[in-house]
Nucleic acid binder design. Structure first.
Length: 245
RNA sequence: UGAUGCCU
């Protein structure tokens, strides 16, 4: 069991989700009963390959074995529904954890918030965010990342700036994703001074921009017809050995 | 040995 789980993890780590599935089938054939970790890994392999329906089927198979599911198993199922764009199903799985007497952690909330945000249900997403303290949970850097992405896409600069400060006041360090949300928001608005200000501040903080971060910067230059600056961004990316998307 | 965030 231990060996199979490690193998599935290793294959998944190098993008060979097909081999993870093979190990899963093989262990069942050999009479080794998969545990919740095994099931979670197979579901995650399906998610990474875009086979969300298959992930859900494995989830149901696991529940049918009568084993007690854990937080990771359920959150992996939530991810499958989230990627399918089915926020209500995400909510159902989340609530089923509570019905079973489980205590969802902040990762579950993050998935839930993101599912609602991606579905355009900003009100619902905010409700789950605001509810965190009542559940005895503290938002983490990913919670803020999700919330900042939402504020950015929604075009709510005052909320985004407030969230950013709140995040920092909690001692959470901004990373390429959170800085990038700020850049993205102002890029979409064509607010070049603020794009520059946030991008520079990111660099000053010692954060290394990633491909999406550069893309947000590019977006502003494209929008403003600044062709030379676009070329420069691409050159910088290439100099850094990055593969533009 | 397993889950959650930004572009594509």
């Amino acid at each position: 069991l231990w060996l199979c789980n490690r193998l599935m993890s290793a294959y998944k780590g190098v993008g060979r989700t097909d081999k993870s599935l093979e190990v899963f089938k093989w262990m069942k054939e050999k009479g080794t009963l998969p545990d919740v970790t095994s099931y979670s890994q197979v579901m995650d392999a399906h998610n990474k390959a875009g086979r969300y329906t298959a992930a859900v089927e494995v989830f149901e198979e696991c529940l049918a074995t009568g084993q007690d599911g854990d937080t990771i198993l359920f959150s992996t199922a939530m991810m499958a529904y989230s990627r399918m764009g089915d926020k209500m199903a995400v909510k159902r799985v989340y609530e089923s954890m509570i019905d079973r007497g489980m205590r969802p952690n902040v990762a579950c909330s993050n998935i839930l918030i993101n599912a609602f945000s991606k579905a355009g249900d900003y009100r619902g997403a905010r409700r789950y965010f605001d509810d965190l303290p009542n559940l005895g949970l503290k938002p983490d850097h990913r919670t803020y990342s999700v919330m900042l992405d939402m504020a950015s896409k929604e075009g709510q600069p005052e909320e985004a700036e407030a969230l950013f400060r709140e995040m920092q006041s909690l001692g959470l360090v901004a990373d390429a994703t959170t800085w990038g949300s700020m850049v993205q928001m102002y890029s979409r608005q064509g607010d070049l001074p603020r794009v520059k200000r946030w991008f520079r501040e990111m660099l000053r903080s010692g954060c290394h921009p990633t491909v999406p971060t550069f893309n947000s910067l590019l977006f502003a230059f494209v929008k403003l017809g600044m062709y030379n600056e676009c070329r420069t961004v691409l050159e910088v990316m290439q100099q850094r050995g990055m593969q533009p998307s």
